[in-house]
Every structure is written in structure tokens, then in C-alpha cells.
Simulated scan of single mutants.
Amino acid sequence: MKITKTTIEGCLRVENTILEDDRGFFVETYRQSELSAALGRPYRFAQGNHSRSQPGVLRGFHTEPWDKLFYVASGTALCVVADTRPESPTFGRHERFLLGDEGTRDRVFIAEGLSNGFYTFSEVHYINDVSGEFTPEGRGGVIWNDPTLAIDWPVADPLLSEKDAGLPTLAQLHPDHSLVTAL
């Protein structure tokens, strides 16, 4: 297992070793001790979540008040992490990860307050473990096609939930921030 930092403060890629043979594969998706060491703080899960999405679905960008460690258990998805924290030195940056059957079996860790979304190329089983139990308070998000983030999604008209289709832009959330006012 190799844990590397990305260009976004608080976003880590957990690269896993896959043991494969003619029966299939085995992968250790994370070790708490190694993740805690990479973060420089203890990390514990409070809740695990599993969603299934049909091909052509885009979920996000969701912002939550907890740390999250996610991966694609089956199918293929383009997962994107965006820094939507206005006080962050990496505000406005994003990272893309192709995860699952046609990508990697890596996991991605994101710190509280980062936003993430994913687009499904096939039916996808998306697993995430979070450091806090679900409550609707503190949850938010940014519209998937935000012009400040300028994500190069592989689709112009994805299948969205009503909630995700109505999320605000970064400029609406942070009208006085220099990055969004420069556009």
C-alpha cells in the first residue's frame, strides 16, 4: 500500500497492491495505522455507506462535515475531488481519478469540507467510510458544472438528482473570493 498526497490539501490517494490469479483478485483497501500516519492524526470510521448507480449518473459535488475514504467496488467511475473551502490554499483546484474495473482499485481519502462527485460509465457500486455519522446539518455542495472549477466531465447532460441539479456555484457561495470574482 502506498499513500500519496495530491495537489489538494487534505486529499490522499491510497494505492493498493492487488494479488491476482486465475480465481480472481484480493486487495487490501486500507490500513488504519498507515492512513493515520499519513494524516498525522488518528483516523477512525463512524459509518460505512454503499450506493449503486446506473450508467450515466453524476452524483455530486457533495460537501460534508466529515472525512471520507471512498472507492469503486464494481463498475467504472470518474471520481473528482474539488477544494471548495474558501480559506484553503488549494481552493478551486480539483483532482480526477478513474476508479473501478477499467481504472484502478485505489481508494481516495478526502478531509472534511472537500467536495466530491462521480460520473458512472457503467453500473457502479461506490463504497465510502466516513468519520462521522450522517446528519443533514453541515452538508452542502457545489453544482457539478461550476465554471470556476471547470471540470472536464465526459458528458454534457448527465442524469442528476433534483438536489444535485439545484446546487449553487462557488460564486454564489463565496461571492467575495478573489478566485471566483476573477472570472
Rank of each mutant, 00 (worst) to 15 (best):
K2V: 13
T76F: 08
L19H: 15
V155A: 04
L114S: 02
V180E: 00
S36R: 02
N128R: 01
S88L: 08
R139Q: 14
H125E: 15
E102I: 04
M1A: 12
S178R: 12
L179F: 06
D21R: 10
A82W: 00
F26K: 00
V180T: 13
R107K: 13
G40I: 04
W66S: 03
L160W: 04
P55L: 09
L149I: 15
F121H: 10
F61N: 01
V14H: 03
E64M: 15
A150V: 09
V81F: 10
E15K: 12
M1C: 13
I110G: 00
P154E: 12
D129L: 09
W66R: 07
K2E: 14
A82Y: 00
V130A: 11
H50F: 13
A165P: 01
G103I: 06
Y30H: 14
E87V: 08
E20H: 12
R41D: 07
L39E: 01
Y43L: 15
F118S: 03
G132V: 00
K2L: 15
W144I: 03
C79W: 00
T169L: 15
H94R: 10
F134K: 05
P136F: 13
Y119H: 10
V72G: 00
L170Y: 03
N116A: 07
I110P: 03
Y43I: 12
F118P: 00
K2M: 14
A77D: 04
V108W: 04
R52L: 15
V130Q: 06
R59K: 13
D152N: 13
I151H: 07
V72Y: 02
A77E: 05
F134P: 01
V130P: 00
L170C: 03
P154C: 11
R23H: 13
G141T: 08
Y119W: 13
Q54S: 14
C79H: 03
A38W: 06
S88V: 09
L99Y: 03
L160T: 05
G132N: 06
K163L: 08
H50L: 13
T135R: 14
V57M: 08
P65F: 00
F70A: 11
T148H: 10
E112F: 03
W66Y: 14
E123T: 15
R96L: 14
E137H: 14
L179R: 09
F121S: 05
G140A: 08
I8V: 11
D106Y: 04
D146Q: 08
T7C: 10
A38M: 11
D106S: 14
T135E: 13
D146K: 04
L114Q: 01
H62W: 11
F70M: 15
P154M: 12
E95I: 05
D176T: 15
A150I: 09
